[in-house]
Every structure is written in C-alpha cells, then in structure tokens.
C-alpha cells in the first residue's frame, strides 16, 4: 500500500530533481516561455530606483541569471539539479530550497522565477530566503497560480474518469493568488504584494503541450501520483478534449508575481499604538457636514 501523504509532503523531491536533471538537455525548447515569464518578473525591477549589487537566482534554468547580469547585477545561482546548476549562467550551488545553504544577509535581491512550486514547505522556504536577504532586500518570485493548466486538468480528469472510473492527480496543485500575499506576510516580509499575469500559449499540436511540460522539467511529482502506466488512450483523448481557439488549443500559465522586502529601518512603518494626535471617537462624533 502506498504511504498516505501528510500536508507537508505533497511533492516527491527526488522526482523533482530527476525531472530537472533530465530537462537540462531539453530546456532550450521551452526557452521562449521561460524567457517571457522571467522578463515579466524582472520588469518589476524597473519599478524601484534601488540599485542591486548582490543577487541570487533560485532555479532560473539558465534564463534568469544572464538576464540579471545583463542588468549589471552580480549574480549567484542555486538549483536542486546538478545538471541545471551547470548551465545556470552564473556561479551556482546545488541546493534544496527547503534547506538553503546561504549565510544570513548575503544578498540584496533574490529572484525565483517559476521555481518554488515543487517545494513542500513553501512558508519555510520563504523564511529562509528572507534570512538570506539583507535588511531592505527584495524578493521577486513567480509561481504558477490556481488557473494554470486548468484546461488540461479538467480534460485529464474527465477523460480518465470516463476511461477508468476514477482519476489520479496529474496536474500539480497550485496556490490561490489570494493566499500568496498572506504567505509572504507569514514569512516576515514587509510590504508584501501578489498580483497575477496570464501567459496564454496556443498549440497547433496539443501533444506538444505535454512534451513542453516534460522538457521544462515540469512532469508530475505529486507524491500521490498514479505510478501505474496511464491508460494508452488517456493523453490523446484528453488533449482532444481541450478547448480550441482558431484550430489550436490553449494552455494558460497564470503567474502569481510576489514581491516582498526584508524588513529594514527606512521602510514605511505603521504608527505606534497611542501615538495618534486626534481622537477617532471625536472624529466620529463630529456632526455630518451640511448638505447643500
């Protein structure tokens, strides 16, 4: 019998690493999508006048570190997979996001582009990332949020249920955008913001969608995944059931973009309780202004 998974152990990290090792050779095939996602994330750097001098790229797959260096920011990288680490485009360590090997206050910018969604203990990983930041350092992270691959999830579940009378999880669970800012806050980040951007990818050959996911190292690593070979008709039938748009099927990548700052002394602070100069009770008692 398969071990029941607890809430902290949703993903099989050894499988995640295997998938990323394998994907190191094929990542070029999906560079366009990864580039698009990374550029949208790094666009947020244009919103701040801060100059960054020490960046960490977490799991950037050879895309993010070169973009950071092109902006003139000295960058180090880490990845769970040694093969991905070798192609990171910056001095790179193999590291587990759940046990990061970086000294406190090592970086003033950490970028994690689509690389934290296979982490079991996301709040724990965010806390460790915050510790690796200097005061007033910035975390920029993107995660696939709820809504990502929703078409594929629906098609696979319906098709498998019809073929087998039951369905196993084949698309990773994604966090709701609403929970993302809360996650940052729980991890101790100041000024946390989460917003969404959608990237739609259209496929003339829907089986290429599945190939691209594999090539990106995004094959299923859910602990409770069905390890039996899937029914032979499952994937062809499921992709045939995907909604079409001008003869092509649509896959949605709904990015949750998270920004948060390591607390620093010069950030806007809330006032100390009791420091107000006007009484709220008096303000509320004031007569309503004359209607004129």
């Amino acid at each position: 019998m398969q071990r029941m998974s607890d809430s902290m152990h949703v993903f099989d990290r050894a499988a995640v690493r295997r998938h990323r090792d394998r994907a190191a050779a094929t990542i070029g095939g999906v560079a366009d999508i990864l580039n698009d996602a990374a550029s949208r994330l790094l666009d947020r750097l244009d919103d701040t006048t801060r100059r960054f001098t020490a960046a960490l790229d977490v799991g950037g797959r050879g895309i993010v570190a070169p973009l950071l260096r092109a902006r003139g920011i000295p960058t180090l990288a880490c990845d769970l997979s040694p093969l991905m680490a070798a192609g990171a485009g910056a001095p790179c360590a193999v590291a587990d996001e759940e046990a990061l090997p970086f000294a406190p206050a090592s970086f003033d910018l950490i970028v994690a582009s689509l690389s934290l969604h296979w982490v079991n203990d996301l709040p724990g990983a965010l806390i460790q990332l915050r510790h690796a930041l200097r005061p007033d350092g910035l975390l920029l992270a993107s995660l696939p949020a709820l809504g990502t691959l929703a078409e594929l999830r629906r098609a696979l579940t319906a098709t498998e249920a019809a073929l087998r009378g039951g369905a196993a999880p084949r698309v990773s669970p994604f966090p709701d955008l609403r929970d993302c800012a809360g996650l940052l806050q729980r991890a101790g980040f100041a000024l946390p913001v989460a917003d969404a951007e959608e990237i739609a990818v259209l496929y003339a050959d829907p089986l290429r969608l599945l190939r691209d996911l594999r090539h990106a190292g995004e094959a299923n690593a859910v602990v409770l995944r069905d390890r039996r070979p899937p029914p032979r008709d499952l994937f062809p039938a499921a992709v045939a059931a995907l909604p079409e748009q001008d003869g092509r099927v649509r896959a949605t990548l709904r990015l949750a973009i998270l920004t948060g700052w390591a607390p620093g002394p010069d950030q806007p602070q809330s006032l100390r309780p009791g420091s107000a100069k006007h009484s709220l009770a008096e303000a509320l008692r004031a007569p309503p202004p004359e209607q004129g």
Partner: peptide, 17 residues
Amino acid sequence: IDPRLLEVLVCPLTKTT
C-alpha cells in the same frame, strides 16, 4: 569553487560556516 560562492555558503542543516 568560485570565491564569490564560497563567501556566502553555509551548512544547509546547521547554517554554520
């Protein structure tokens, strides 16, 4: 090992040098 990496690495378990 790249010296810039060496500067920031600690033990992932104990966070010691």
